[in-house]
Design a protein around this nucleic acid. Structure first.
Length: 662
DNA sequence: ATGAATTTGGT
DNA sequence: CCAAATTCA
């Protein structure tokens, strides 16, 4: 193969160390390293300002690392990654394409297309695992089915018969392909208006794989030991701060894992209980990241619809005023507001506070969780579709192992726990900074003279609670009983409809999505507090599928004239409690195709499969995730059987009781 | 003082 | 849900 030229397509693997796609490129000869900026492909999920800022720095550092090794990073601005790749192949004469796996639904579709299209023109395409300890299809239960609860999943990950791959060293040298015919496009990740705000970010963060390495070492030798003790302090530098590095793949999660294992053994031998517990806890957070990819792969719509179907019928309160108040940090609950102000001004939020603000969003305000998720996407430095979808689904009680929906956490009580001295609130809410600790988490209870002395005027310079907690509780109960009525009605309709045979029109009417609010930007000047609204929306909160256009574009059997219909049909379908799901052959399925017999690029598997266990899970594209619109044995009925596999699921039991009493 | 009821933490 | 902790009567 030497003498050949390969394109190494960088995406969220912006590192030279432990990068199997890059390593494969180097092994096979000349390398052209490419990054394609095609944000239009992301649909609603155009990256936010801080995330783009990070990406910009990270790409610059990757480029400089590649230059040290003998080539440079070619950047392309595109609206269509596939055609950009085709163009690059033509202009460079490359004969191979290597990249590392992604697991979000868009990438699954697009990467599958890339394989198909490029294979058809004789390009060898190989893809690798660089993002996970184990590929999603490796971690299965005894019946070879994917797990549906985190604990089971993670237990299996930690007791797999083989370890995750050991991290690879960076290549010593890269032989560059001929770049003269593929000039880089300037990609604009930061516009003029954003530069000012972004300047502050550089003081707190250092993107790039080298800095990721340093951050990892600093954490391992410092805060990790006390991680379990400190993890519930809202306002301290006791977390790893690795998540943005991990999101962009600047840091190999396998490297993190192996270093953690070393610490674990060390501290176990010393009998250091706290240290051991800390490692286990931190490992668990790595595990949750793994699980988010796992869920995204096995349930590709988890970012836009609830995994348990019942929330389809929840009457969300569609109120942009509420939404704005939440974003501005003017809900009247100090811990929530402090968190939202911190998020807005820094792009960062402690994990515990993320739970507080998102749970408040869903349970107290009863806003559609996808709005909150989208806002997180827009503002978080470590915005990550899979992780955030998992987090919001957990909060929303739509996972078998998530929280009950009818449980409201009390931000006041959480304030005592996460911010006992009120320092966090005082930092982010200057208007409350003179309030004594006793009242800092519930200023509405404070005597008038205390408020006066602190210069707090409730309803004026700091709001009264936008919704009282007991009001929120009764409102939630009411909403839940309404939800059950709707669920029952809809089930009746569906049962009738299915007898007739085909998807009836009532269904698509009911599936109208709740759109994202138009303007999600911050307006701090306006006082939007007002009486509680009662507008509710009974539709499932779906948006047009992000994947629709890609599916259709790839599917040549569909003529362009019925694109509209297909778009409608391929939009998400939510399984309900009966496990009734429309059998819709346009619904994407995820296939796993083992290397053996795979028409798709296994001809380079030089390694003998018997020499070691490793070869059976060979990282070099040994197993390829394939997103296929056709039916497959792997995931037919996947979603419909999701609940059936969890008849014991607490939500079902709770809610059945609820529906009877309501 | 002690069993029952309620809250809390957990992915 | 379920176990553990905490509050209640």
């Amino acid at each position: 193969m030497s003498g050949g030229c390969s394109i190494v397509w960088f995406r969220r693997d912006l590192r030279v160390e432990d990068n199997p796609a890059l390593a494969a490129g180097v092994r096979s000869g000349k390398v052209i390293a490419v990054y394609i900026w095609a944000p239009e492909e992301e649909g609603h999920y155009y990256p936010g300002r801080v995330s783009r800022w990070w990406l910009k720095q990270s790409l610059a550092l990757l480029d400089s690392s590649l230059k040290n090794l003998g080539t440079s990073l070619v950047t392309k601005r595109s609206t269509d990654s596939v055609s950009s790749l085709l163009h690059l192949i033509k202009s460079t004469g490359a004969t191979q394409l290597y990249f590392n796996h992604l697991y979000d639904p868009l990438s699954l579709v697009r990467d599958h297309q890339v394989k198909e299209i490029l294979a058809n023109i004789g390009i060898e395409v190989r893809s690798f695992n660089a993002d996970l300890l184990y590929e999603p299809w490796e971690v299965l239960d005894d019946e070879h089915r994917p797990f549906n609860t985190f604990t089971e999943f993670w237990d299996r990950c930690l007791s797999m018969p083989y370890d995750p791959e050991s991290p690879q060293l960076p290549p010593k040298k890269i032989i560059s392909g001929d770049l003269s015919n593929c000039p880089s496009d300037t990609i604009i990740l930061e516009d003029e208006s954003e530069k000012g705000s972004n300047a502050l970010l550089a003081r707190a963060w250092s993107p790039g794989w080298k800095h990721a390495d340093k951050a990892l070492a600093a954490f391992m030798n410092g805060p990790l030991l006390e991680y379990s003790k400190n993890r519930r302090k809202a306002d301290s530098a006791t977390t790893s701060f690795l998540s943005p590095h991990l999101h962009f793949g600047e840091l190999s999660v396998r490297k993190v894992f192996h270093l953690l294992r070393i610490k674990q053994v060390l501290w176990a031998n010393e009998g250091n209980k706290a240290g051991e517990e800390s490692v286990n806890l931190f490992l668990k957070s790595i595990g949750l990241r793994e699980y988010s990819r796992y869920m995204s792969f096995n349930h590709p719509y988890s970012h836009e619809r609830p995994l348990l179907g019942h929330l389809k019928f929840f009457p969300w309160i569609i109120d942009e005023g509420y939404f704005k108040v939440w974003r501005q940090g003017r809900t009247g609950y100090p811990l929530v507001d402090a968190g939202m102000r911190e998020l807005w001004s820094t792009g960062w939020l402690h994990d515990r506070i993320r739970v507080v603000v998102s749970s408040f969003f869903v349970k107290v305000l009863q806003l559609p969780w996808r709005w909150g998720m989208k806002y997180f996407w827009d503002t978080l430095l470590d915005a990550d579709l899979e992780s955030d979808a998992l987090g919001w689904q957990y909060i929303s009680g739509t996972l078998p192992d998530g929280r009950e929906f009818d449980r409201i956490d009390n931000p006041q009580v959480e304030g005592y726990k996460f911010d006992p001295n009120g320092e966090y609130v005082r930092r982010w809410l200057p208007e409350l900074s003179r309030l004594p600790t006793e009242w800092i988490h519930h200023p509405w209870d404070a005597p008038e003279y205390v408020l006066q002395a602190a210069g707090v005027e409730l309803g004026s310079n700091y709001p009264l609670p936008i919704v009282k907690l007991d009001a929120a509780k009764s409102r939630l109960q009411e909403a839940l009983s309404q939800m059950w009525q709707h669920e029952a009605t809809s089930r009746a309709i569906l049962e009738n409809g299915i007898e007739e045979g085909l998807g009836d029109s009532s269904e698509s009417a009911a599936d109208a999505p709740i759109a994202f609010p138009q303007a999600m930007e911050m307006e701090m000047d306006e006082n939007t507090l007002r009486a509680a609204p009662t507008i509710r929306n009974y539709e499932d909160q779906m948006v047009p599928s992000m994947t629709t256009s890609l599916i259709i574009r790839g599917d040549d059997e569909s003529s362009s004239s019925d694109v509209g219909n297909l778009a409608e049909d391929s939009r998400v379908e939510v399984p309900n409690n009966q496990g009734m799901v429309r059998t819709d052959n346009m619904q994407p399925r995820v296939d796993v195709i083992p290397t053996t017999g795979l028409p798709d690029g296994d001809h380079l598997q030089a390694e003998s499969s018997s020499t070691s266990r490793a070869s059976s899970r060979e990282r070099d594209g040994g197993v390829v995730p394939v997103w296929s619109p056709s039916t497959s044995s792997f995931s037919v009925g996947e979603d419909s059987s999701y609940l059936q596999r969890h008849p014991q699921s607490h939500q079902l039991i709770n809610w059945r009781r609820l529906s009877q009493t309501g």
